[in-house]
Write a protein that binds this DNA or RNA. Structure first.
Length: 227
DNA sequence: GCGACAG
DNA sequence: ATCTTGTCGC
């Protein structure tokens, strides 16, 4: 799989922001996709001393959630962690991973925000636009926005608001556990994004393997699709 | 100026 | 994210 859009990754803060502002115009904030047969989950881990990034990518059959393809790759750090510019740090290894898979997913669930971002262009939106594939932002914590704590039952949610606009939903995927921050990535409406996250959450079961690569994939799935 | 700040 | 002891809150 190759991205349909390319841009440099060796850049400074100002250039990165400029790219975000330009690419943000391409984000489609409504449902615009065909049948979802395959769903991808991605996560990036850090090596011991944090000098290398490890991207784990899995492709699952969307209804059975069975693993059909996976890859784990390493990449060098090219950008520091700066809130708001997160994608410039973690997308290079993620894109490298996507280049190695054969099955093109119809949806990608990302560990990070979509449009719940200062310039409405978080990692999920960035990845979605570069490949022009539907993506959902599913962050564990908040980048910005205000909200009231959602009720404790699975499925409960409350809007995440910034600048008087709803930029996402704080969604409870299981009773009594910390909610996730769901936002539009690309080609998905917020309502659909939440439905899909809920659809994937309860069915998930860890694959039984011992290989290191699959171990990372397990971790990836655990994080991206909360229990 | 002082905090807040995806992973 | 990762490194880590005791400590705060329910």
């Amino acid at each position: 799989m190759e991205p349909i859009l390319i841009h440099p990754w060796e850049l400074n803060e100002k250039e990165a922001i400029s790219i975000q502002v330009n690419l943000a115009k391409k984000v489609i904030q409504r449902d615009y996709y065909d049948q979802i047969n395959y769903v991808a989950g991605v996560d990036v881990a850090y090596s011991k001393r944090g000098e290398e990034l490890i991207a784990a990518l899995v492709i699952l059959e969307s209804t059975s959630l069975k693993l059909v393809e996976s890859v784990v790759i390493e990449d060098k750090v090219r950008f520091p962690y700066i809130p708001g510019l997160f994608s410039f740090r973690e997308l290079p290894p993620i894109i490298k991973a996507f280049k190695q898979i054969k099955i093109k997913p119809n949806l990608i669930v990302c560990d990070g925000q979509g449009i719940a971002h200062p310039r409405r262009f978080g990692l999920a939106s960035h990845l979605g636009v570069l490949f022009d594939i539907p993506t959902i932002g599913c962050g564990k914590t908040r980048l910005l926005g205000t909200y009231k704590e959602p009720e404790l039952q699975r499925g409960a949610y409350s809007p995440l608001i910034d600048n008087n606009e709803v930029i996402g939903n704080v969604l409870r995927t299981q009773d009594n556990i910390k909610p996730v921050f769901v936002s539009i990535g690309h080609r998905i409406s917020l309502a659909t994004a939440c439905e899909l996250i809920l659809q994937f959450s309860p069915k998930y079961r860890l694959p039984e393997t011992t290989r290191q690569a699959d171990h990372l994939v397990k971790i990836t799935l655990n994080k991206i699709i909360p229990k």
